[in-house]
Design a binder for these strands. Structure first.
Lengths: 347, 347
DNA sequence: CTGTTAGCGCTTTCAC
DNA sequence: GTGAAAGCGCTAACAG
């Protein structure tokens, strides 16, 4: 049997109250000598409070839940790492929940976590969530009165904290970098048109064009699916479009672009400039290291925990939307375009 | 305030005992009518038992802890996915613990998990654990009487369950595949000589040579560090060794080999055959897709949970060492060697 | 068939 | 300064 607080009481001759008091640093009026005796006994009997009992009475467990779709996806595993590191450093624990992007698992995990008495939830909503499902999740969370912060998703209506990245800025930075290098006809390989992050990147791209007073041309946009095939398909599609650079909305499709170009004997960056998004680990080690846009995923994990704990500890607290800026990672896949040679307008 | 069992009792007019009985399916003698009333009330008041209270009295939490060094490492995130999936399907939960390979974090997490009342622990020991530290961890686990299964590490002495992969077999399979393709002079790029998995792969390699009655030549072995640089260094080292194939002990170093060969104008598999180990995701999408050895990591996660839960539920139960066999994934990086053309001895 | 009661291990109010 | 006692929400003997 584990040592309990009673054991310490018996062993030292004090009451459980006294033990509890000194263990919880509420022992203003208890003399050093008593404290010492108790601490010695704790050490000697190797006492560690049963956190189930503590949680039951304090209604705090120092535990949070992380709901994501799939830890084996590098985005989420990086996030989870940040979350876990942040938890540990503050003495908290983490319950991991994979939903495989199923909304009903979101729902059931929220309930399970509530039953386990987590103090808060970090919530990456399932991708299959439409407006109604989203609302349902949020509603449940609110009914259960569990503090939560949404990750990678911002909801105007839902009064809650979010940690997101500014994809528009990411798209803008990528496009502008290309423009500054003298590219004017820039093809895009987007993600599925339903996804907000893809749409935002596109908006950023448009904004950069506007700044350069270059008309937006729909035929330069190829709707992809964030996979290699999309990249390859885009190259075929762009064949007759006189494009000097491609902005792929993620590295996977950038890689597809790269391979298909190579197959056609077009080299990067000489024959075509290429920029990606995500900075997945092999982007750095390709033959032509990929210039790309990196999201501070780990930091988002860390920050979301900070925000969540703050809300937990202050009971509610101010809801915030924390926006992270992606960073342009310059490597070797972008060269100078025609406008640059003609005396472009580098800012 | 959350609905409690008392609320259900008041609402229905029955006692908490009766409620508890029907909720726990121990209500043999309770009439349908009563049951129905209770279930209706449960539904209506949206009652969910507080698992902290349940855990406190039952001494079971349906929760396990997973101690690994780093979720953001793809090996562990894949494992974690298997573990979590397996937990969910059985109604269990998972507390995730990252140690960054620090032994003292192993120790503190074990204690924390115990305090939280987990029913068992899946334990990937920190890499920095020497014999003494290893013993210390195991000792603690045993003192705490927490069922645990070791992952990726087998300890003869420690009477406990393990889930491991047969790296010797992996090394054997890779080497034999090369031999069957007519290669006789096969270079190896190993991992650090201290790591057991690397040593095991080497033993498998030797065993295959023996089977073919080919003398083992120490100069064909290049000690690497599981990184790209190791692969590049190996190519330089092998330059004057008349080797027709390289067995890299992981895909990262295989990739290093591949790149350096390319730089030297040697093509794979025409100029040199190459085989890797791990099957990391980009091995498949390289220009020359890499033939490699794949560990069933996800399945190991699933299986380790199965074993752990079995031990938890049977109180102790039989300790087992579950050995997984790696699989050879044949792609395009291995060609035929000199012995094959001279009429080799394919089995 | 159902209810009373005694905990599980802890915190906290209140009294001495 | 310290302790008795109530109670967190639940389960499980034991009665009846």
């Amino acid at each position: 049997m584990r040592t309990t607080i009673k054991d310490i009481a018996n062993y030292t001759g004090f009451s459980v109250t006294t033990i509890s008091l000194v263990l919880n640093n509420k022992a203003d009026k208890i003399p050093r000598s008593t404290k010492n005796k108790i601490m010695d006994a704790v050490e000697e009997l190797n006492y560690h409070p049963n956190q189930l009992a503590v949680g039951l009475v304090k209604k705090r467990t120092q535990t949070i839940g992380l709901i994501i779709s799939d830890v084996s996806n590098v985005f989420f595993s990086t996030l989870a790492k940040g979350v876990e590191d942040s938890c540990r450093s503050q003495g908290w624990n983490l319950i991991l929940c994979n939903t495989n992007d199923k909304h009903d698992r979101d729902m059931s995990y929220i309930q399970v976590l509530a039953n386990k008495g987590v103090d808060g939830i970090l919530f990456c909503m399932a991708r299959d969530s439409d407006k109604k499902k989203t609302e349902e999740s949020i509603q449940l969370l609110k009914k259960l009165k569990i503090p939560f912060v949404m990750i990678d998703r911002y909801l105007e209506e839902a009064d809650c904290s979010s940690v997101i990245v500014d994809h528009r800025q990411g798209g803008y930075a990528a496009a502008k970098y290309l423009l500054r290098h003298g590219h004017r006809n820039i093809g895009c390989v987007t993600g599925p048109s339903g996804l907000e992050d893809s749409m935002e990147r596109l908006k950023g791209y448009k904004k950069a064009l506007e700044e350069y007073e270059i008309p937006y041309r729909a035929e330069f946009i190829y709707e992809g699916n964030y996979d290699r095939e999309s990249g390859a398909g885009a190259v075929d599609y762009f064949e007759d479009k006189e494009i000097s650079a491609v902005f792929a909305f993620n590295d996977m499709s950038a890689y597809g672009v790269y391979n298909r170009l190579k197959k056609r004997g077009i080299s990067v960056p000489e024959g075509m400039s290429l920029i990606g998004y995500d900075d997945i680990f092999f982007s750095e080690i390709l033959d032509v290291p990929l210039t790309t846009v990196k999201q501070p995923i780990y930091e988002m994990g860390v920050e979301s925990v900070r925000q969540l704990i703050e809300e937990v500890e202050s009971d509610a607290g101010a809801k915030k939307c924390i926006v992270f800026q992606p960073a342009l990672i310059v490597r070797e896949s972008v060269g100078y375009g025609p406008a640059y040679e003609r005396g472009g307008r580098p800012i």
